[in-house]
């Protein structure tokens, strides 16, 4: 086992008067791929910044059982890849790799260079000469090749085009399988990464909305589709998080501790019972405007 275990207890982070995170209690097991989801401003970046010792919060933060802040042994093994890059801007990419090789004890230079070829990056270029997609790719390379026991990717693949993202997902899964470690993926492209995740943590407005096994989450949601009154009859008693009407047809999304017998009954009554993709579930749970409208 090489990955780090993460734990926060009543973690609160404020920037002056604004509170970015409130009372976060989180446990993420080592050697798994965790998804960290949330709308813009939900506090994902703040949470990852605290785990990466970029800033301090109130409450307890433990990485592999230790306070990571200014802890050389932990910090060197915690890698947060941000869209901003954190690179030596006036140095060539190859010099940046040498710098990282010094900074990261497990950095694999050979792997980094093979990834440079995969993503077609010219090592002689400087970071400021890269396009957005190339900069994202270089960030991904840094995160992968650092082989840090805790590696966090904060929206790093947003700048990549679709084929580059496919390569990125492939490399993450492949390298994770070969070198297990704790990986935290944060992304708005939820449908693309949904099945890569073993756990899903959703932050909403600075609070922890849920942190669950992806499998459990998958079976906790269902859509019921059919004639409106039949749908309504079967949806009563279940926690409805979303409703959509298309003419006489209604689709409701139910979420929670579902009554499987009731769902089977719904199916017998001619309703279509379907899975709720993680992205839809995320939208239902975090679209506060719509939730307030509905209630």
């Amino acid at each position: 086992m090489t990955g780090y275990r993460l734990h926060t207890d009543n973690l609160t982070v404020s920037y002056g008067k604004t509170t970015a995170l409130t009372g976060i209690n989180l446990d993420l097991a080592p050697d798994r791929i965790h998804g960290l989801l949330g709308r813009n401003g939900a506090g994902k970046t703040t949470l990852m910044s605290v785990l990466a010792s970029l800033r301090r919060g109130q409450g307890t933060v433990r990485v592999e059982g230790q306070d990571p802040f200014e802890n050389e042994a932990i910090m060197q093994n915690v890698c947060l890849i941000r869209e901003s890059g954190d690179l030596l801007l006036d140095e060539k990419l190859t010099t940046n790799l040498s710098f990282l090789e010094d900074a990261r004890p497990r950095f694999d230079r050979t792997y980094a260079e093979s990834l440079m070829a995969t993503f077609r990056l010219d090592p002689a270029k400087k970071p400021q000469a890269l396009s957005r997609g190339q900069a994202s790719a270089f960030g991904a390379i840094v995160g992968l090749a650092s082989r840090a026991p805790l590696t966090m990717f904060d929206e790093v693949h947003l700048g990549m085009d679709a084929p580059a993202r496919q390569r990125f997902y492939h490399e993450v899964l492949h390298d994770f399988a070969e070198h297990p470690r704790t990986i935290v993926l944060s992304s708005h492209l939820i449908s693309e990464i949904a099945h890569m995740l073993e756990t899903v943590t959703i932050l909403h407005e600075g609070r922890l909305l849920l942190s669950n096994e992806a499998d459990d989450l998958h079976v906790s949601g269902a859509t019921l589709t059919g004639a409106a009154e039949v749908v309504d009859r079967h949806a009563t008693g279940q926690q409805v998080v979303g409703t959509q009407d298309l003419g006489p047809t209604r689709q409701v999304t139910v979420f929670g501790d579902l009554d499987e017998a009731a769902l089977a009954a719904a199916e017998r009554d001619g309703l279509t019972v379907g899975a709720v993709p993680l992205q839809d579930l995320f939208i239902h749970l975090t679209d506060t405007d719509r939730a307030e409208e509905a209630s």
């Binding site: 010792s53 200014e70 910090m75 060197q76 941000r82 030596l88 710098f99 900074a103 840090a148």
Partner: peptide, 10 residues
């Protein structure tokens, strides 16, 4: 850059 790449402020 130093801190973001896992090195301490100290």
């Amino acid at each position: 850059i130093h801190v973001a790449n896992g090195m301490t402020r100290r």
